[in-house]
Nucleic acid binder design. Structure first.
Lengths: 351, 351
DNA sequence: AATTCTTATGTTAACGTTAACAAAATGATA
DNA sequence: TATCATTTTGTTAACGTTAACATAAGAATT
């Protein structure tokens, strides 16, 4: 591997100082046209590529940002990541990918590493409700933007940015929809309580239940980790109940995949024998053969907005803003609504 | 944001030279225990974090690697990416994520950018059969490892590393399986011919066809881009044929999703009315409600091996090796095999 | 032609590390 | 106690840039 040409190499060949070359490279004014041309020719000829690590060192900007997500396996993060990557590139930023695998310790390690690497900012989607790492970053004013999950700490609200959707409303919409269709025993599958998303969606679900005068039954709530396996186990447990639910609300779509697996295995039909509503609207949900009703959020937009906001922060903007997008109920087959309609009517409560 | 402590800060406070501090940080021998302890205490106290960009500049190693993929939307790359990320971290490497969106120009841009950033090596999954960017990297001896897709250029075979599976065999297995089950008109959906994967899998498919004395019909081959939409269009086209195929081989699973969409839309049952075999075994394929028969490859392993090999290359190993893993036929519902079995027999040709 | 203003270029230092070498301090040996 | 070997520490330069300031060369004004 040949050593790439440096500013000084070009300077020597062009009989100018390296500063002049630097000026040309960054096309700053104050260089005679002839000199500029001579230098440019050499730049082309030697295929000069500026050494960004050297530049980073002096300008104290790496044009790198860190993206911390729990696991890339969850398709939800795909679209988010795409929004982040695309938008970052449009700002000439590169993205360093970090997965925490739901491990708070690893999150800390990654943050430390990213700071050592001199990233200009971090987009973090793995925040926990009480998250010391995020708190520390926020307090020192390091540019972070939380996406999807947030920290719930009033002290921090003016020190950290957040972009997400109204999860309470989303949870409420999902449950309300099932309740409207006449379901009264509804199984709820949630992920970790350390995620604000869980708390908020549960809160929404409870609101809807309360409005219908129903209280949350312990047996009908299954807690896990937002991965497919949790959905599978939850569904199996629900089915084994003496009085199983007639509908399931899975707090994310990825777990709903597991629900489908368990139901298919036991010959339980969706939506005839069991209605199902998910959350996030991952690509899978929209497949015709699946038709998972779900609460949709604009994942790409979320990622894109997060990067844009991060850029503002890097440019010095004050922290402490938040953007809450609207969730949307997407009705497909799995909730049974379309079926009810085509059978010429809704459940009793709707008539 | 407070400026982080530097070596010199610590040196000043510890009344030693910064070199001594550097020695302690990198725990090199030749520092008195007492001095070391004094420095260590300060390191802890000030929460000193070495500036990796400064270090990179002098040691000429960034401990960063670039991962270039076509699009993170294709679930195939998820698992691959995970293998890469996990393994990279185990070597204390960070991964810079780059998506080409199937654009060769963008691939070039990314490579250039990564080199400017001083990555130690690149893992590239977006190679085209004739790929000038890869060729250039290979010729200058830059550490690259190709995964999944390769360049087909005899001049380069001793200059570039490749890790993939035997796609010819995979294609052959898929088609042979369908042929064995009695199918004689088989629609084939392929992605871009610029990908070696396409050429190889097609080659395998043809071999199987030839063995059965069948020639490839133009109408039964649909070319696209390995994304879902292609599968959808292809299936619709096949169905509109005066004499539609009885089976479809989709060269990847992601397109098979589109096939399902089209078939479901038109009320064509899988596998009763149309058998279907995919390739890659993405998570979706294994869902019980889907049961997509497919050719499996160990995606995580591929990624992991690629990183390990890249590390060897960075340490100076000679280029020019390749690893070809074995594909595996995964029989699920969509190919109709299990159905045939349960009906007490196979298609005529198998009896 | 001398003076001022402007434009073009150069010199030097800095960024935070590591590396090569030099020097000082310590311990062992005579 | 002087000498040498060894251990510990320090000095300086380098990595490839940009930034601040200084200087030189031209052009414009008197």
């Amino acid at each position: 591997m040949i050593n790439p040409a440096t500013l000084k190499d070009i300077a020597r060949l062009a009989h100018v100082s390296h500063t002049t070359v630097s000026r040309v490279i960054n096309n700053r004014p104050g260089v005679r046209a002839a000199t500029k041309k001579r230098i440019m020719r050499l730049v082309k000829e030697l295929d000069y590529q500026p050494n960004l690590v050297a530049r980073s060192l002096v300008v104290k900007r790496s044009k790198n940002l860190g993206m911390i997500i729990t696991t890339i396996r969850n398709p939800f993060y795909l679209e988010l990541a795409q929004g982040i990557e695309d938008t970052a590139r449009s700002f000439e930023y590169n993205v360093i990918l970090c997965c925490t695998n739901h491990d708070l310790f690893l999150e800390g390690e990654h943050i430390r590493e990213l700071k050592r690497r001199g990233v200009d900012g971090i987009i973090l989607t793995s925040a926990q409700i009480k998250d010391g790492h995020v708190a520390a970053l926020a307090r020192e004013g390091f540019p972070v933007v939380l996406v999807n999950r947030r920290v719930l700490d009033p002290d921090l609200s003016d020190k950290v940015d957040y972009i997400g959707i109204d999860n309470v409303k989303g949870g409420e919409m999902a449950l309300e929809h099932l309740l409207k269709m006449g379901h009264r025993r509804i199984g709820i599958i949630r992920g970790s309580l350390e995620s604000s998303v869980t708390v908020e969606r549960m809160e929404g679900a409870c609101r809807a239940l309360t409005r219908y005068g129903i209280s949350l039954e312990d047996d009908l709530v299954f807690g896990g980790d937002y991965l497919k396996g949790t959905g599978y186990e939850a569904a199996k447990k629900f089915l084994s109940l003496p009085n199983p639910p007639s509908a399931i609300f899975s707090l994310n779509d990825y777990m709903a995949l597991g629900v489908y697996d368990a139901l298919t295995e036991q010959g339980v039909r969706v939506p005839e024998d069991m209605a199902l509503v998910g959350f996030n609207d991952i690509e899978f949900a929209s497949l015709k053969m699946v038709g998972l009703s779900t609460i949709s959020q604009k994942k790409y937009t979320l990622g894109s907005m997060a990067v844009r906001r991060l850029m503002e922060r890097i440019e010095g903007a004050q922290a402490g803003r938040e953007w809450i997008l609207e969730p949307e109920l997407i009705i497909r087959r799995s909730c049974g609504y379309t079926l009810a309609i085509s059978h010429g009517g809704l459940a009793p409560s709707e008539r």
